[in-house]
Simulated scan of single mutants.
Amino acid sequence: MYSRAETSKIRTEFWIKFGYYMKPVPNAQGRKINWPNYRTGIKDVYFRMKAEREFASIGIELGHPDVELQELFFDQFKELKNLLKASLGEEWDWKLHSKNEMGQTVSKIEKVLPGVNVMEQADWPKIISFLKPRIIALDEFWDNVKPGFEDY
C-alpha cells in the first residue's frame, strides 16, 4: 500500500514523463503545446486524461454548470460524431449528465483502457501508448471544429 505522499509523487512522475515524451510533438497548428495540461480555449470544455490504479482514460468533458447548456454542447458534439470517429479511428463512449469525482454533473465522451495501473511503472508504456495517439487526434479534431464552439 502506498501513502498519500507516495501516490502523489508517483502520479506526478508519470505526468512529467508523459510531458517529456510528448514535448517534441507539435499541435495541429505546428506549435509547442503542454500536452498533459491541454487547454481547449473554450470555457467548460476540457480534454481530460487520467491514469489511475485500475485504468487510464482520455476524453472530452463538458462541465458547464447549467445542465441545459451542457446538453446543448453535448448535442453539438453529437452532430460532429462521425468527424470525431474519423479523427480518432474508433468509437468512444458517450455519457450525458454523469457525476465526476467532485460530485458535479458533467457530460463525457471518452475512451477507457482497463487493466493498467499508474502505480506500476511497467504499465507506463501501455498508458502512454494509449494516451499519445488519442490526444494528438483530439487536437487535430479540435483544430477543425473549435470555431463552431466559440460563440457560446
Results as ranks from 00 to 15, higher is better:
Lys146Asp: 01
Trp35Met: 00
Asn37Lys: 10
Lys81Met: 14
Met102Val: 09
Lys23Leu: 12
Ile60Gly: 05
Phe18Asn: 12
Phe77Trp: 10
Gln70Ser: 14
Leu84Pro: 13
Ile128Tyr: 00
Lys146Ser: 08
Lys126Phe: 04
Lys126Met: 09
Pro24Thr: 09
Ser3Ile: 03
Asp93Asn: 13
Pro65Ala: 11
Gly59Trp: 01
Lys146Met: 03
Arg4Phe: 12
Pro26Ile: 07
Ser8Val: 07
Arg48Trp: 11
Gly59Cys: 09
Met1Ser: 15
Glu79Lys: 15
Ile109Cys: 05
Met1Val: 12
Ala86Tyr: 06
Asp93Met: 10
Asp93Arg: 14
Lys43Ala: 15
Lys132Pro: 06
Thr105Glu: 01
Pro65Phe: 10
Asp151Met: 11
Ile60Val: 08
Glu91Met: 11
Ala56Thr: 07
Asp123Lys: 00
Ile109Gly: 02
Trp35Arg: 00
Ile42Thr: 03
Trp94Val: 12
Tyr152Met: 08
Asp75Tyr: 09
Ile33Arg: 13
Met49Ala: 15
Leu84Asp: 05
Val106Met: 00
Pro114Met: 01
Asn37Met: 06
Leu96Tyr: 07
Ser107Glu: 04
Gly19Cys: 04
Glu71Ser: 06
Phe130Pro: 05
Glu120Lys: 15
Lys32Thr: 08
Val106Lys: 00
Leu138Asp: 01
Arg134Ala: 08
Phe18Leu: 15
Ile60Phe: 10
Asn144Phe: 06
Ala86Val: 08
Asp75Met: 12
Arg39Val: 12
Trp124Glu: 03
Ile109Lys: 00
Val145Gly: 02
Val112Ile: 05
Ala56Trp: 00
Val67Asn: 13
Leu62Gly: 14
Tyr38His: 10
Phe77Ile: 11
Gly19Trp: 00
Ser87Cys: 11
Ala122Asp: 08
Asn82Gln: 14
Met119Leu: 02
Gly41Val: 10
Tyr152Ile: 03
Glu120Phe: 04
Pro36Phe: 01
Met49Ser: 15
Val118Lys: 01
Met22Lys: 02
His97Asn: 13
Ile58Cys: 06
Ala86Asn: 13
Pro65Tyr: 10
Gly41Asp: 11
Asn144Met: 11
Gly63Cys: 13
Thr12Gln: 15
Met102Glu: 13
Pro26Leu: 03
Gly115Pro: 00
Phe74Trp: 12
Trp92Asn: 13
Val112Glu: 02
Val112Pro: 04
Phe18Tyr: 11
Ala28Pro: 09
Asp151Tyr: 07
